[in-house]
Design a protein around this nucleic acid. Sequence first.
DNA 1: GATTCCACTATACGCATGTTCAGCAGATTA
DNA 2: TAATCTGCTGAACATGCGTATAGTGGAATC
Lengths: 233, 233
Amino acid sequence: MRIVESFPEHDLTARARLRNAAIEIFAASGFNASVRDIATHAGVSAGLITHHFGSKENLRHECDLEVVRQYREIKSNGVAMTPTQSIAIISETNEYAPMLVYILRSVKDGGLAGREILEHMIEEAIVFSEEGVATGVVRPSRDPASRARYLVTSGLGGILLQLSLRAELDIGKLDLSEIGPIVRGIVDDVTLPTLEVYTEGVLADGAYLDEYLRVAANQNGQPAPRSETERKK
Amino acid sequence: MRIVESFPEHDLTARARLRNAAIEIFAASGFNASVRDIATHAGVSAGLITHHFGSKENLRHECDLEVVRQYREIKSNGVAMTPTQSIAIISETNEYAPMLVYILRSVKDGGLAGREILEHMIEEAIVFSEEGVATGVVRPSRDPASRARYLVTSGLGGILLQLSLRAELDIGKLDLSEIGPIVRGIVDDVTLPTLEVYTEGVLADGAYLDEYLRVAANQNGQPAPRSETERKK
DNA sequence: GATTCCACTATACGCATGTTCAGCAGATTA
DNA sequence: TAATCTGCTGAACATGCGTATAGTGGAATC
């Protein structure tokens, strides 16, 4: 007996193995990796990729979907937390390394998977912040959505930047087994200053914030409202 | 009469015009732009680039040097400030758009110019923080160097991430005249949450920080000291 | 005025890429 | 057993890339 619908059910098909090989190569070598490299790594010929996926772009798209699915699956078991913590936890399981690096690369250059996961993290941060405010752990904000977006993008962006400096993400191949220690090193370095800033702030008093609020209140149309309209689209 | 040493003095030489065209194209289209595109934009043939610079890599290197030089020149007039403020100020002058985007792109993919400028910003943040502590504007930190690095990388990384989302930095050409408004929009959106976090923090009390300090003090060798040794290299 | 020099162009070479296509081997079907 | 189907291969094609090279025209030098 044979399975007619080839793809959605069990993922032991050659097609799925090909896609997983692609995820690994994309993670290790970046999204400019050649289809020949992917095919070689999967032990098949280059033409088979076109045969199964039609084009490299389609293959990339299916990798995106699969990676997002994996991420959601992992995340569904745990509680909502800060992106730094999520990355730290995921980086502890070596099996997740390809997915993790794929995601980081995708976030960095604005890929579909990266956008999706980033927005997911922001949504997560919003509810996490609301809950924290309700239980008295987190301070309320004048603009909770903006703060959530800021905290997520700066947290994740900072890690990405440090990763660019430590791992040579952009040049040549990357040994996926090295990514765990590197990420954990970054998280370690970042934890103390993050906690300091999150609990004590950086500025000694509220002069700058008060000044900004005063200016923003006076000019009702510049620049705070501009940022609001821009945020909507 | 003719100038023998062609390059360092006044920058009206064809070679310099070629390099400036390269900076503009790299900024508009990314570092994968072809030498033919650069040559066309400069109104010359592709072979001339090889003739003057030897290789595309060398051209890129000279662009890096020039952009860093321009950045230092602009910065030398002003006071040290946070990277977000620096970017905001530079983004207000349209003339600087190519340099600004070139820098942002270079930081994003770990280029020489990006690394140099990032380290420069961190050094700047350290002295700025020291001065602030001395005058009572900035709170002292348990690890000032780590905090400076954290603040710079998260600030700049966050802007880069938001830029990836708003401008299609990675796909196709970018209209350099649009970058000013986009960057200013990002800065506007980020200013309030930044000021909030910097003056009030995010967490309501010091429980998490105290807990971290207690754990770090107990295990003298893990993980805080690890991060110290890693930071040194 | 003849010669040398040099910025510059046009063409072409070698290479890597994504994709196409004719064909093959083995399982399935008749 | 014969026919069919299909996952798969190997070679080839078109394209875009960085670079090498031969050649040209006009200025500088003698």
